[in-house]
């Protein structure tokens, strides 16, 4: 429990910190053209962002199969109230939503480790928090 609260708090703290210094596309390493839409948010999330871009963006950026889009606050407001451990579990084990939407285990990539999946979740939570706080729908 202590771990969950601490980690979640850190993610929100990092996001708030990023807002304070105004995240810009040029602040990122910008090895791709997604830097403005999916900002780095914090240096600590660099690896998390990479995993997310390579494995999760393809559905979560577009709402494929009902995947919640972090850029749309209304799709994440309630989800962000959930404990991180639950989001980790859903991402690692897979999950059926209320309308029988399906989040496949490890985003459909069985080669991803638990650490990589949770890292990707960390970035998506930070990204959703960022858009929620800035209301960038």
């Amino acid at each position: 429990m202590f771990y969950r609260v601490t980690r979640q708090t850190i993610l929100i703290g990092l996001t708030l910190l990023s807002l304070g210094v105004s995240v810009k596309a040029e602040d990122n390493t910008a090895e791709d053209d997604t830097a403005e839409e999916f900002p780095l948010i914090a240096d600590e999330l660099g690896e998390s962002r990479k995993v997310w871009l390579q494995n999760c963006q393809t559905c979560h950026a577009y709402g494929i199969a009902g995947a919640p889009i972090p850029k749309i606050p209304s799709q994440w407001e309630e989800r962000l109230q959930s404990p991180l451990s639950q989001l980790y579990q859903h991402a690692i084990e897979g999950f059926y939503g209320e309308s029988d939407t399906h989040m496949p285990a490890r985003g459909g990539n069985p080669a991803l480790s638990d650490a990589e999946v949770t890292a990707a979740v960390d970035y998506m939570v930070a990204l959703a928090t960022y858009y929620l706080l800035t209301k960038k729908d």
Binding site: A65, G66, Y96, S99, D100, T101, H102
Partner: peptide
């Protein structure tokens, strides 16, 4: 198609 995929295939076949 999304409803068929979710409410029929996902629910009855996968879940």
């Amino acid at each position: 198609r999304a409803v068929y995929t979710r409410r029929i295939v996902n629910r009855l076949a996968a879940k």
